[in-house]
């Protein structure tokens, strides 16, 4: 029995993180079993989802001029260094043999086609909230890109976190699968924002602090952490007046998502610089509005315990 089936209904912390890594991921159904004939509209939707889910940031080694979606980007975490896998349609080194159902299972359940659990550096605890249709559209778009033959690099995970068999119990403790359900009584804009923040944008993967086992701490959702990816500090983006974005004008928050500019003329860097470049700046204006609408509706969290950084500038 699948462990995650046991956890249905448990409350889920907003996120966690992990790369599809594979190597072992490549068994597969008969090639072409899915015989996708993606139409233009589906590819267009998939292309937008690809941006909103910011697949680029991890699955392309941009800084070393790596091939699109061929993986290999290093991500240093407190648990070790992970290397993103190849998710091009190459059948040998990528995911070219995956069926739609296998792709959906990877995103929804965090389980590879041959039954391995993914490390939560792959943000499936967020992507699990995507709709089936969005997952299918995203896969169609990925499969429309050039297949690249590039073998995956082994992760360098610290003892004992590298034991994959521990990931099953980890899932049981930290994860509940299931698509996002719009909240009744909320506006469409709010629900769209919630979906963008919780599912596609996987904002909590960086902005929510993690416990010692690497699960995100839902009590501190989106309130920042000093232990972000690559050792970077990640600010509190709940509307808390002093430690979050509670004192910011809507236009200021929108502008960060649109151009990366902070209220004093500084420009965000580190991971958020990538997020702005690859993702939020390319969203539709109304989707950015939706994100702001949702963030400002959150309960303000004063995150001093986690020593979260405040949003704003670092002049040098």
């Amino acid at each position: 029995m699948r462990l995650s089936a046991l956890t249905e209904g448990r409350r889920i912390p907003v996120g966690v993180a992990a790369f599809l890594l594979s190597g072992s991921v490549l068994i597969a159904a008969a090639p072409g079993a899915d015989a996708q004939s993606a139409d233009a509209a589906q590819l267009e939707r998939g292309a937008y989802l690809f941006i909103a889910a910011d697949c680029m940031a991890c699955h392309t080694d941009v800084k070393n001029k790596g091939a699109l979606m061929a993986g290999g980007r290093a991500l240093a975490t407190p648990f070790g260094t992970f290397y993103s896998p190849n998710i091009t349609a190459d059948p040998e080194t990528g995911i070219g043999n995956w069926t739609d159902e296998e792709f959906i299972r990877a995103l929804r359940e965090g389980v590879s086609p041959d039954g391995d659990y993914y490390f939560p550096v792959f943000p499936y605890p967020s992507y699990t909230k995507m709709t089936d249709q969005d997952m299918r559209d995203l896969k169609a778009y990925l499969f429309s890109l050039a297949p690249v033959k590039q073998a995956n690099r082994e992760h360098e995970v610290d003892f004992p976190f590298g034991w994959r068999f521990t990931l099953g119990p980890w899932q049981w403790m930290n994860f509940t699968s299931g698509a996002f359900a719009p909240e009744a009584g909320r506006t469409d804009l709010w629900n769209r924002g919630a979906y963008l923040v919780q599912a596609l944008g996987h904002c909590g993967e960086c902005h929510t602090p993690r416990g010692w086992l690497g699960g995100t701490d839902s009590d501190y959702a989106l309130s920042g952490t000093p232990d972000g990816p690559d050792g970077e500090k990640v600010p509190n983006i709940t509307p808390h007046k002093e430690t979050g974005i509670g004192g910011w004008a809507r236009a200021d928050i929108l502008r960060v998502l649109t151009t990366g500019m902070l209220p004093d003329g500084d420009f965000v860097g580190s991971g958020m610089g990538e997020v702005v470049s690859f993702s939020t700046s390319k969203l539709t204006p109304v989707d950015r509005e939706a994100i702001v609408e949702y963030l400002l509706s959150l309960p303000p969290i004063e995150n001093t315990e986690a020593k979260a950084t405040k949003p704003g500038s670092a002049w040098d």
């Binding site: 800084k63 970077e232 500090k233 420009f267 860097g269 580190s270 950084t309």
Partner: peptide, 11 residues
């Protein structure tokens, strides 16, 4: 600005 900050500046 952001391009440089992504690689060379920490928050």
């Amino acid at each position: 600005c952001g391009g440089c900050h992504q690689t060379f500046r920490a928050k």
